[in-house]
Design a protein around this nucleic acid. Structure first.
Lengths: 128, 128
DNA sequence: GCCTGTATTGACAATCATTATCAATAGCGC
DNA sequence: GCGCTATTGATAATGATTGTCAATACAGGC
């Protein structure tokens, strides 16, 4: 079997993602790492993020401008409330909504599979 | 003022979008139109779709693979239940959810602005 | 119906995020 | 420490989308 290896690059990406306050693009993360003196490659950042997303250690969503944004998160199912100004993200657990989603799907003869729910707004700090 | 003109290209796009059962990409739509004998250009399809989206005559969402998908729809606010197999989309109006979204936002000190809610599943026809 | 000014088109180049390529490097088990 | 091979990083390639610009075709006035 192909054994997985631990590299400082993967740790760096994981760390940098943890530091970020909200959702970040792979490009941004790469830039931040480079500015901190790291010589990590862009492709590697993409690979590390894809890994993290697959291991449920990161959430990803598509920005309206077409980029994929990432954020560190716990493994439990949840959604986000995101500030459109500064990008801060708050995790939201919404069992009621899960139930609603499943019910609606069944109502239309669909086998419920998945859903995308992201709330956008302006946080208290940016509201002034 | 720059007056808007009616062209057969815009009508063609609008029509083709109306014919589609679910969400379609600009590229797909362009291909369909070409296959029907139209000589419409790809850039024009993009422009027409952007117009329709702005006039609230079409909804758009980002597929996981990064494309932008479009669908004809009414102007009233609503969400979608989409089959991941065949792409059929059902419009869902969910006043309860709107209320929930606003409430959650306020709860966290956010000024509610917007939200993305898309449900995915497998429709009855594709379920077998 | 015909003319004219300009919004719109379409072919193609340019851009931007992301993925593939592949030789060089560096973990990990021995 | 050695060797095997997963991983890296520079760069090329891809694919969707947007910009460019000369040619075209609506719309309104005659």
């Amino acid at each position: 079997m192909t054994t997985k290896r631990n590299t400082w690059q993967k740790d760096a990406v994981k760390h940098a993602l943890g530091e970020a306050t909200g959702f970040v693009s792979a490009q941004d993360l790469h830039l931040v790492l480079r500015n901190h003196g790291s010589s990590i490659g862009l492709a590697t950042v993409y690979r590390a993020l894809a890994d993290l997303a697959q291991q449920q250690e990161a959430d990803s969503l598509q920005s309206t401008s077409g980029e994929t944004l990432f954020r560190a998160c716990g493994a439990s199912h949840h959604h986000h409330l995101i500030c459109t100004e500064c990008g801060v993200a708050v995790e939201i657990s919404a069992t009621e909504i899960e139930a609603w989603a499943n019910q609606v799907a069944k109502q239309h003869g669909f086998k419920p599979a998945n859903h995308t729910i992201e709330l956008f707004g302006i946080c208290a700090k940016c509201a002034d």
